[in-house]
Computed example of a mutant assay.
Amino acid sequence: MSFTSGRPEERRQITDARALRALAHPLRLALLNHLMAFGTQTASQCAEVIGSTASNCSYHLRSLARYGLVESVDPEDGRERPWRTTATGLQFGRSEEPGFAYGAESVERALIEKQIDDEAELTRRAIAQRSELPPEWRDASMLSGYALRVTPDELRELGEKLDALIRPFIGLTREDPPEGSDVVALHLNAYRHPDAGLS
């Protein structure tokens, strides 16, 4: 599986309702997540991992390209054209911010819920394969949960510090990753506990 790293960092926030709707399609979101994790890939390579056909993946990659989320690149061998994301990180629009498209709130929510479901499924698959991992990867894996007591400002500061620690390891932007490195999924979620007002 090919991987192109060392790109300049470009994080983008998506607030356009049409782009959010395009991403809300399960296969398109899976394609975008795959390209974010593994770098430049052909439609055939994506299809093999995602469980679809190359022609279907190609159709949905072209749809994502219409909204500027992916782009095709020149093939090295003159055969199938590979695709890559146009940004190295994405944030979905926040409906409370100025400029957020009218009517996009429900699309944003559905997209976030789909992303949460996909992350949970990815974690389940990782746990199911845990016994097959080499011991060094098994020992390095983390599944941790914390109940913090913080102010909104402290939570924001904590998020910024964690982001600063993690950012140098992003696969799409990391130059010359050391031998033995591989793609790792890391998901961090922090929010006021939904039951906080009840206790």
Rank of each mutant, 00 (worst) to 15 (best):
S2M: 15
F3A: 07
S5N: 10
S5T: 13
G6S: 03
G6Q: 03
R7C: 11
P8V: 12
E10H: 08
D16H: 05
A22L: 06
A24M: 06
L29S: 10
L29V: 10
L31N: 00
L35A: 04
T40S: 11
Q41G: 05
I50R: 01
S52T: 05
S52L: 02
T53P: 12
Y59E: 08
H60S: 02
L61W: 02
L64S: 00
A65F: 02
R66W: 04
Y67L: 09
G68K: 01
G68E: 01
D74S: 15
D77L: 05
R81P: 03
A87N: 00
F92Q: 06
R94Y: 08
S95W: 12
P98C: 08
P98Y: 03
P98D: 03
Y102C: 15
G103H: 03
V107F: 02
L111P: 01
I112W: 10
I112Q: 07
D118G: 06
D118A: 11
D118C: 07
E119R: 09
A120V: 12
E121G: 10
L122P: 04
T123Q: 09
R124E: 11
I127E: 08
Q129S: 15
S131K: 15
P135W: 05
E136T: 14
L148K: 00
L148D: 00
V150Q: 03
D153Y: 12
E154G: 06
K161A: 09
L165F: 14
R167V: 14
R167S: 06
V183F: 04
V184C: 08
H187P: 07
Y191W: 14
D195H: 14
